[in-house]
Design a protein around this nucleic acid. Structure first.
Length: 402
DNA sequence: TCTGGGGTCCTAGGACCC
DNA sequence: TCTGGGGTCCTAGGACCC
């Protein structure tokens, strides 16, 4: 019970983050692009090389603005397959370093190297080797931050970019953190940043100087507590290997010309097909179907529906989406739709069932008794997960082939 | 050529249940 | 008959991340 209280005094978490990932893959694969400003994506900048960043180009910037800032930039179409392959190769290097790898996105991950000291050396040495191996095996530059917490490791890698290694010295965490701008805190975007700056709070140190209550009153309970903890470098989250995502979705921009209802319907059908294919190949099923819309004025809306049984069946998902589309029709007619997306959440693995047992309220002891009863009846591997949902016991059991 | 294509987490209100 | 606490699930919206 007390093992979670173990204190990590060592900087043993690595945050590894590929630099300008898509653009770096393009420069690696086409020598003519090396040393030159490269922009991936025409309508919107998906990624840009450091040469383009030097002109002021940023990720997610409109393509036209990017070209004004950097007229000499070479614009290339994204090649998602190449990026996926490159990502796989990099993650292979991560997993050879330690089994405790938590992928965050296509181009970054946390690695827990605690306990590898005898085998592989200090975390700083492990990080140096990791960077060299990624460069040798994939030809890509990567930045690594090393710190005692996930959050601080991520801050360190951001500060160390590009192609760098930053080790936050033990005992020097707050000295490193406090001079940084508030925007470095995970979870501070444009809205929160504006609120904080309104009160003259521009650095992490100023946030740390505020009481938790003051932050909560400014930003709400969750965000206030979160920021208060981060500003003091309190982040107890462990590196979790094998985390699975909670939803699968796809979306499609429709452009600004008015779409007929039939055209929208056809796009939605294609999206449902794409999403359910991906679900099936990932072996996932889901219950909550969400329709996302964006309108001509860039406002957004969403509609969702939860179906009784989890599924990855295209026709079932599409039927639910059609229903949502009908619901949203008045808004679409009024405001003009420019983007449509669907996603399926509440994902399960399709190989197990959740049982919420029809008795309760339950205590931990009653849950244990229920577990024993099920194991006696179905075998010791029958229950893969047991938890109290509220006061009622919930068991997860593998779905037996029939 | 104004704005891509994925995701996560939190909040708040209402329906519903005991 | 009236009032209440405590809880879950669903829905919609919003902020944020890469």
């Amino acid at each position: 019970m007390c093992e979670n209280l173990r204190v990590t005094s060592d900087a043993s978490i690595l945050h590894a983050d590929l630099d300008a990932f898509y653009a770096s893959v393009e420069q690696r694969d086409d020598p003519r692009l090396r040393g030159r400003p490269v922009i991936v994506g025409g309508g919107v900048v998906l990624a840009c090389s450091y040469e383009a960043k030097a002109c002021g180009v940023k990720t997610a910037m409109g393509g036209r603005q990017a070209r004004v800032l950097c007229p000499q930039a070479i614009v290339v179409e994204p090649r998602m397959r190449a990026y996926t392959a490159a990502s796989r190769a990099v993650f292979e290097v991560f997993r050879q370093t330690t089994p405790l790898v938590e992928g965050i996105s296509i181009d970054e991950a946390f690695l827990d190297v605690r306990g590898l000291r005898k085998v592989s050396g200090r975390p700083a040495d492990i990080a140096a080797v990791l960077r060299r191996q990624v460069r040798e095996k994939t030809g890509l530059p990567i930045t690594v931050g090393v710190a005692p917490t996930k959050f601080l490791a991520k801050v360190a890698s951001a500060v160390g970019k590009p192609d760098g290694l930053i080790v936050v010295p033990v005992g020097g965490e707050l000295a490193f953190l406090h001079p940084l701008a508030v925007e470095r805190l995970w979870g501070v975007g444009p809205v929160t940043s504006a609120k904080l700056r309104q009160f003259g709070i521009t650095t992490v140190g100023r946030v740390a100087g505020l009481g938790e209550a003051a932050l909560v009153s400014m930003l709400g309970v969750a965000a206030g507590r979160h920021l208060h903890a981060l500003a003091h470098n309190r982040d107890p989250r462990p590196v979790q290997a094998g985390r699975r995502r909670g939803s699968i979705g796809a979306q499609s921009a429709l452009g600004r010309t008015r779409q007929s209802p039939e055209a929208v319907e056809a796009t939605v059908a294609a999206l449902a097909d794409r999403v359910t294919r991906r679900m099936r190949s990932a072996g996932r099923v889901g219950r909550t179907v969400m329709l996302r819309l964006r309108f001509a004025d860039f406002s957004r809306a969403s509609r969702s529906h939860t179906i009784a049984r989890p599924t990855a069946h295209t026709a079932t998902i599409l039927e639910a989406v059609r229903g949502l589309l009908v619901q949203a029709q008045p808004e679409i007619a009024l405001r003009g739709i420019t983007l449509v997306g669907i996603s399926v959440g509440n994902l399960g693995d399709g190989r197990s069932v959740q049982l919420e047992l029809p008795f309760g309220p339950a205590s931990g002891e009653e849950l244990d008794a229920a577990l024993d009863a099920v194991r006696e009846r179905f075998g010791s591997s029958a229950v893969t997960r047991a938890a109290l949902v509220g006061r009622a016991p919930s068991l997860e059991m593998p779905l037996l082939p029939d």
